[in-house]
Design a protein around this nucleic acid. Structure first.
Lengths: 227, 227
DNA sequence: CGCGCTCTTGACTAGGGTCAAGTGCAGTGG
DNA sequence: CCACTGCACTTGACCCTAGTCAAGAGCGCG
C-alpha cells in the first residue's frame, strides 16, 4: 500500500541537506537506507539536533501541513530515500483512510520521541541522558530489524550525538568514558554495545512503550474502519 | 463548525489532573478559559513541563492517535474545557475534511512549539531561554486576543515556569531579576511586562513564524478542497 | 495570630563548558 | 613504502554557571 505513495528511490551521499529550513513547497520523504538527522540552527551557529532518523522513518511528515518547514535535515551517511508528494498525501486521506492514519500514527510517534528528548535534556543529567538516548536508538533499530538486544551499528559522530543531547562533544566524550568504565555500554568504531542493559534501563528509567504502541486506531473499532 | 465536535463545557478548579499519563480510552479537550500545563514525571519525582496551554489550545490531540497518553495535564488556574470524543474526531475526518485538517494543523503547531522548546533547552542559556519563552507566550496570548504587545497576564508560578525551562526555581528567580535589572522585562504579580521588546527579540532570535503560519492547506489548492 | 504558600537572597559547591594540546587513523600523493 | 594532511576522538587544566542548602520576607487564609 505504501508503495503507491512513493516516487522512485533516490540515492544521496553523506553530508547533503534534504529540506532547508524555511523552504516552501517541499515534500516529505521516506528513508530506506542510511541515517539522517533533523536539526535547527541558532543565529550564532550553534546547532540543536531534534532527532535522528533511521531506515523506515519519515522525513518532514509534519511540515507537509505547514507552508514552510521549520527545521532542516542532513544525511549522516549515504542514504536512499523516496519522495512523497504533498498532493499525494492529501489524496490518500480520501482514498485510503487507513493508510492516512498510519501516516498520522507515524507523525505522532515522532512527536512522542521529541517529547522524550525534551524531558531528557530538561531533567536528566548528561550521564543518564546519553544512556537513555542510546537505549532508545537501540530499541528503534531493533524494531526495524537492525541490531540485536546487545548492540547495533551506529554511524553517529560524537559531535552529532552531542548536539542531540544538548552537551558539548568534549563532555560527551567524558560521559562515554564513564559509561565504558562502569561496564554499562561501549560506543566505539560506529557501534554501540550494551554491557549491562538491565542496569542501564534501571538507571535511566527507559520505557520503550512510546516507540511501539500497538497501532490503536486499527484495533479499537474507529469510524474509519467502516468507512 | 468546531462547536459540533464538542461536548458541553465543564468547569474545573485549579490543581486538577485532566489526562493521567498511561491512562487509556481518554478524549481530547478544548481549553476555553484558564491555563493548563502538560508535563512528564521522572521516577525520582522531578518534573519536566512539555508546554503550557492557554485558551484556544487543544489538550491531548496527539494522544488521540495512541492507545495511551504519554504525558499528563494539570490545571494551573480554574479552567473551562469541553470534551471531544475520539470517535467524533474520526467521523470528522470523513464528514468535514477541512475541519479535520484544522485539527491536524493545530497538532502540527503544537509540535513546532515543542521543537522550539527542545532547541531552547538544549542550546540557549537560561537568560535568553527565559526571555524567549515569555516572548513566545506573549505572542500566543496576543493571537487569541489576550494581552497586548507590551505585556500580558501570566498566572504561572515560578516553579512551574522553571520546570518548563529546565532550570531550578531558584535560578529562574535570579534570571528574572537580571531581566528586570537590564530593563528588558518584568514578571511580577502574575503579569509579564515587556520593557524593551526590540532588544529582547534581538537577544533571543525570537521569530514567531512557527506560531501563526497562514494555514497552508487551505490556501494551496489541496485535493481536499475539491472533495 | 499563625500556618503555609511563593518568592527572594546569600554562601557554597560541583558539574559541565572552554581552551589547548595531543593521539590515532584513513586517504593522498610523492 | 612512507611522509603529510585532515578529521574524529582523547585528555588535562581551568573557570564559570547553575544547582544545593539554608534562611528569611511577603502575603493570603483559616
Amino acid at each position: 500500500m505504501l508503495a503507491a505513495l512513493q516516487g522512485p528511490r533516490v540515492k544521496m551521499s553523506k553530508g547533503q541537506e534534504i529540506v532547508y529550513e524555511g523552504q516552501s513547497q517541499h515534500a516529505a520523504y521516506l528513508l530506506h537506507e542510511g541515517w539522517v538527522c533533523s536539526y535547527k540552527l541558532l543565529q550564532d551557529g550553534r546547532r540543536q539536533t531534534i532527532d535522528i532518523q533511521i531506515p523506515g522513518d519519515f522525513l518532514g511528515l509534519r511540515s507537509v501541513l505547514l507552508r514552510t518547514s521549520d527545521h532542516s535535515f542532513v544525511t549522516l551517511t549515504d542514504v536512499e530515500v523516496s519522495r512523497i508528494r504533498t498532493q499525494t498525501i492529501w489524496e490518500t486521506f480520501r482514498s485510503a483512510p487507513n493508510l492516512a492514519l498510519a501516516l498520522l500514527w507515524a507523525a505522532s510517534r515522532d512527536e512522542a520521541i521529541v517529547v522524550e528528548h525534551l524531558v531528557s535534556i530538561g531533567r536528566r543529567d548528561p550521564f543518564s541522558r546519553t544512556a537513555h538516548f542510546l537505549l532508545e536508538l537501540g530499541a528503534r533499530m531493533k524494531l526495524v530489524g537492525y541490531g540485536t538486544a546487545s548492540g547495533y551499528e551506529c554511524p553517529l559522530s560524537q559531535s552529532v550525538l552531542a548536539d542531540a543531547l544538548g552537551i558539548t562533544a568534549i563532555h560527551l566524550n567524558r560521559v562515554l568514558r564513564q559509561l565504558r568504565e562502569a561496564n554499562l555500554l561501549v560506543f566505539r568504531k560506529g557501534r554501540v554495545t550494551f554491557l549491562d542493559k538491565g542496569k542501564l534501563v534501571e538507571l535511566t528509567g527507559f520505557d520503550p512503550d512510546y516507540l511501539d504502541w500497538d497501532k490503536p486506531v486499527f484495533t479499537s473499532g474507529s469510524a474509519w474502519k467502516s468507512g
